[in-house]
Design a protein around this nucleic acid. Structure first.
Lengths: 84, 84
DNA sequence: CCACATTTGTCCGTATGTATC
DNA sequence: AGATACATACGGACAAATGTG
């Protein structure tokens, strides 16, 4: 069937860290380069994951600084599950 | 200041067509190629716009066929306004 | 069933812009 | 001025699904 795209995998992973409190509100995500190394993907792929996370309102990116966790919502929309 | 990215421009445009009923539920979006030509951008940029629209639940893409408008919700979250 | 074209979706490498330090 | 970091964009490539013949 449909292989799960890498960027949705990354979204899921970071989302879990936010929900579990491992990444508290106000915390910063690893740098772009570190995430590229950690997940073994390109910046574009990280960028796609960030688009999803920002659209869901889980994080906010600030240019030149970092990507911050915005909040710890009670219960989230589908885990970026557009492909069923 | 912050220039508005092309892909958010596209999101906003398509979203307006959906909300206004110009693109009814079940309708298909133009093909990827047509949108590239219409907005004068690359497929990646269209792809980024589609990620946002899918994450917001406005459309569903089906490989090999088309992208379908899912529903006409009453009111939507901020128009992909992650950057203020 | 198989070959082929079309279309959506994803990914990479690279480049550029912008903001912060 | 330079380094660092996030954000966007292009072009090319390949995979997956669909439809047609």
């Amino acid at each position: 069937m449909g292989r799960r795209p890498s960027y949705l995998d990354i979204v899921d992973d970071i989302r879990r860290q936010i929900v579990s409190g491992q990444l508290a509100p106000g915390a910063t995500l690893p740098t772009c380069r570190e995430m590229c190394a950690a997940y073994q993907v390109s910046r574009q792929t990280i960028g796609s994951a960030m688009i999803v996370l920002r659209t869901q309102g889980l994080v906010v990116g600030q240019q030149g600084r970092a990507v911050y966790v915005t909040a710890n919502p009670h219960h989230l929309p589908s885990p970026a599950d557009s492909s069923k």
